[in-house]
Computed example of a mutant assay.
Amino acid sequence: MRAINQQVLGGPEVLELVEVDPPVPADGEVLVRVRAAGVNPADWKLRSGVVDRIGPPPFRLGLEFSGVVEGTGEEVFALWLSRAGAYAEYVAVPGEALARKPSSVDHTHAAALPGAALTAWQALAGVAGVHSGQRVLVHAAAGGVGHLAVQIAKARGAYVIGTARADKHEFVRSLGADEVVDYTAVDFTEAIDPVDVAYDLVGGDYGSRSLSIVDSGGVLLDAVGDDAEGGGDPRYRRFYVSPSGADLAEIAALVDAGTLRVHVEQTLDLADAAKAHQLSESGRVRGKIVLTV
């Protein structure tokens, strides 16, 4: 099968298109023919060594995908962290990580969902328990996680504020945001009234700055690691996404109901994985990038 492997840590150029044997599923695993694989910031961070979650190379990236179960033809999608990831024609994944693909979207859009949608859903619906009447601030609201977080918070009845560059304001408003703030033009801490929940998808000093406008009983959700980490503030919550077929089933229901839509900025062939990483690493992507297999 075709796959994208890497032998060393480094820039996008270390991603190599190779021919390898398909994986052999272990007990409890399912063999899936990959139709599309999503590209996430976590991918280039693993590739370059900024994040070490799967050990040293050689390994294959690809945390999320949509495809067809070999032998049954069932269409599925999933998030799964492995040293033999989804940048390939086949992947072996534990059955509990899989969910039926939303029937209303194609494999390209389904592959863009698992990582970003689970990161938004588990943080907002799970940790924060966002509900009607709350004010929710989503940083990087036009990004992969952010654009889904805006929709999820809105679907749960919240008043949603997003931060984004001016050229992305129309897009963020189309997702349901009630306010959009250009963080390049104003200090968001001065432009936004206190909120119940702030979701930091940027990092750096966004943590402490966001805490300054979070109500005393509110919560700051940190998905990337920011300067509020370790500060001891009871409002602070460090968040890590977890694979979950059950949560993906809920997300699929939202998609099929028309409540949640994923924006795919660009699709590229599997062989163009290095180009996809360059785009992702630029930090200027609206929505998601997907590799078609």
Rank of each mutant, 00 (worst) to 15 (best):
D222Y: 10
K101A: 08
L137H: 07
L46M: 14
L61T: 06
G49M: 02
R135E: 13
A252D: 02
P102A: 09
A88M: 06
A84G: 02
H139S: 01
D256A: 05
R60V: 11
G55M: 11
D215M: 07
E281H: 09
R100L: 14
V241G: 09
S242W: 14
G146T: 10
G28I: 11
A185I: 01
I4H: 04
G115F: 15
S242T: 15
G258K: 07
V181R: 02
G95P: 00
G203K: 05
I4Y: 04
R165K: 14
D167M: 00
E170N: 00
T267R: 15
L81A: 14
A228L: 12
A249M: 02
L63N: 13
E70Y: 00
A86Q: 01
D215C: 01
Y87T: 07
G115M: 15
V127H: 06
H131P: 00
L291V: 12
A37K: 07
H277D: 14
G287H: 07
V93M: 09
H139P: 01
R209S: 05
R53H: 02
P12G: 14
A177Q: 04
H109P: 00
Y236G: 05
H139N: 03
G162H: 02
A198I: 04
G217W: 12
V93G: 09
V145R: 08
F171R: 08
L148T: 03
V214C: 02
V39Y: 08
A37N: 09
L201W: 00
H169W: 12
P41A: 11
L211F: 11
V264A: 07
G230F: 13
D52F: 01
Q122M: 12
V93W: 11
V181S: 02
L81N: 09
K168N: 15
Q151V: 06
G146L: 07
H107M: 02
P41G: 11
S66H: 01
G49I: 06
E170G: 00
Y240S: 15
Q7P: 00
V180E: 03
P22G: 08
G162V: 07
L248F: 08
G10W: 09
Y199Q: 01
I161T: 14
T184N: 13
V51Y: 15
V180Y: 01
A223R: 03
S212D: 10
I251H: 04
D182R: 09
D187E: 12
A84H: 07
K168R: 15
W121H: 10
G283T: 13
D182Y: 06
E13R: 10
A276R: 11
G232Q: 09
G176Q: 09
V30K: 05
D196G: 04
F65G: 06
A177I: 04
A111W: 04
F77G: 04
A252K: 06
V136E: 05
P194L: 06
S132L: 10
L201P: 01
G143Y: 07
